[in-house]
Design a protein around this nucleic acid. Structure first.
Length: 470
DNA sequence: ATGTCC
């Protein structure tokens, strides 16, 4: 795959074969080792009907199902543009929530161990069932799928203010519960309020560097402040919805005369029965993921209150795996686009009308979970930019789970983290080893490349005090 | 990511 360098941190893949638009990759050469497979996926996405602008890739690009992880693709809804479940991924609405404590790391130090033990008991995690909420019946699951974080807050698991600090006010309105299969519901029933496994985590962190004082103040962050970061998604429910709708679209595609270079790019027009069905089910999973993060926040708040006498205020909650219908100006014209972000985070600039009043001047908080034991970042959107107000989502994997687990034992990794002063509460030592920092790109380099490409600006760097993992 | 293959 030939990459033409256009600027620092910006490469172009010229259209060839069935590509309708170019590929644009925001990265440095150093961030693209062995990227051939994922760059081919960038080119494949550029063949989708109705794609607008370019098939974009963020600096944390790596190989994924059909679309690369770290990919952004927008299609024009009024021009036959398609929606593809592979452009969202299996973990629909996977995302990050950051809460800021009313304490700094020095005052907090003596409480850390008790807080970690409390979180160890309070946070359900790992593969399979288990969640903080035990549903009273199927009607309650439907209310979660329609109401997301808003429903959890209505039930007493949070504050009204939380909802103003959530993307979409904590729930999207267009969930179609009828498009969520019985099997997806069954899988979702017992996992409401759970972390899951792999790179999902809950971390106790503190603000280690502030890069932008004004934005940090607007977000409620200050140097030394203790924070809680929660990274999780829609568990088995979202996974099953992706499986169901990929299958349905794979069968339906030929009726729309759509051919794709890879079956994993199965898609139909946004404005088709199959497209609307997927988007309705995806919205339900989006709400499930948000309720999930709201309930885990509530559990963490209880632990912080009891073990440290500390309060947690929501900084923001944003997904990095979603397709959204958004209005963007393209070549001077307002167009209705279906923006797929898969391992890419929405990053609204200052002044965007969808931001709450108290964030309008600073821009949207963008939450970047780092690799376990390293740093995480808070960024903000910037004016102009490219890729439909999107930026990176994390470090990006380099080694497979199997390769990672061969480099270190879970026991040794835990000892290493503890010796660095990071408390670790793993559910499984094997799972811990699979997440060793060596398996990932350097999140600092990913963030620097994203900023260098003009996609976002750094606000703060966070480092871990304690890790809760599946 | 995921009842890591219905």
């Amino acid at each position: 795959m030939e990459l033409v360098q256009e600027a620092d941190y910006r490469f172009r893949i010229d259209p060839h074969g069935a590509m309708r638009v170019p590929g644009v990759v925001f990265a440095s050469r150093a961030l693209l080792p062995d990227a051939e497979k994922s760059l081919e996926q960038v080119a494949n996405v550029a063949t989708l009907p109705g794609i607008v602008g370019a098939s974009y890739a963020m600096p944390d690009i790596h190989w994924g199902y059909g679309f690369p992880i770290g990919g952004v693709a927008a299609t024009d809804v009024d021009e036959g543009g398609v929606v593809s479940p592979g452009g969202v991924g299996f973990d629909i609405s996977c995302g990050v929530r950051l809460l800021a404590a009313d304490t700094d790391r020095h005052s907090f130090r003596s409480a850390l161990s008790a807080v970690m033990d409390g979180l160890d008991r309070a946070i359900p995690r790992g593969a399979g069932p288990g969640g903080v909420w035990h549903l009273t019946g199927p009607g309650q699951l439907e209310r979660i799928l329609r109401g997301g974080s808003r429903y959890a807050v209505e039930e007493g698991h949070g504050e009204e203010r939380d909802l103003r600090r959530c993307e979409d006010g904590g729930a999207v309105a267009d969930a179609d519960v009828g498009e969520v299969s019985v099997r997806a519901r069954q899988r979702g029933l017992g996992q409401v309020g759970s972390l899951g496994s792999a790179n999902h985590f809950l971390e106790v962190q503190y603000v280690d560097e502030v890069h932008d004082e004004r934005a940090a103040a607007a977000f409620g962050l200050a140097l030394g402040q203790v924070c809680v970061m929660i990274h999780c998604g829609s568990r088995g429910l979202g996974h099953q919805i992706c499986t169901d709708h990929v299958k349905a679209m794979d069968r339906a595609m030929s009726r729309y005369d759509i051919t794709v270079p890879d079956r994993q790019l199965a898609c139909t027009p946004v404005d088709s029965p199959e497209g609307r069905a997927y988007l309705g089910a995806m919205a339900a999973a989006a709400n499930y993921g948000r309720a999930n993060r709201q309930l885990l926040s509530d559990a963490a708040r209880g632990v912080f209150r009891g073990a440290a006498g500390a309060r947690l205020s929501l900084v923001y909650d944003v997904s990095h795996n979603l397709a959204k219908i958004e209005t963007h100006t393209v070549a001077g014209a307002r167009r209705t686009l279906c923006v797929h972000r898969k391992g890419a985070t929405r990053a609204f600039p200052p002044g965007h009308p969808d931001l709450p009043d108290d964030l309008r001047e600073a821009g949207q908080p963008v939450l970047i979970p780092g690799t376990m034991g390293t740093a995480s970042y808070v960024l903000t959107g910037v004016p102009g930019g490219d890729a439909f107000h999107s930026t990176c989502h994390g470090a990006g994997r380099l080694l497979s789970r199997h390769q990672a687990a061969r480099t270190v034992t879970g026991r040794d990794l835990r000892a290493r983290l503890e010796s660095e002063g990071i408390a670790v509460r793993p559910r499984s030592l094997r799972g811990l080893a699979e997440e060793t920092p060596e398996a990932y790109k350097d999140v600092g380099e990913v963030v620097a490349a994203s900023e260098g490409a003009g996609l976002c600006r750094r606000v703060a760097r966070l480092v871990p005090l304690g890790v809760v993992k599946g």
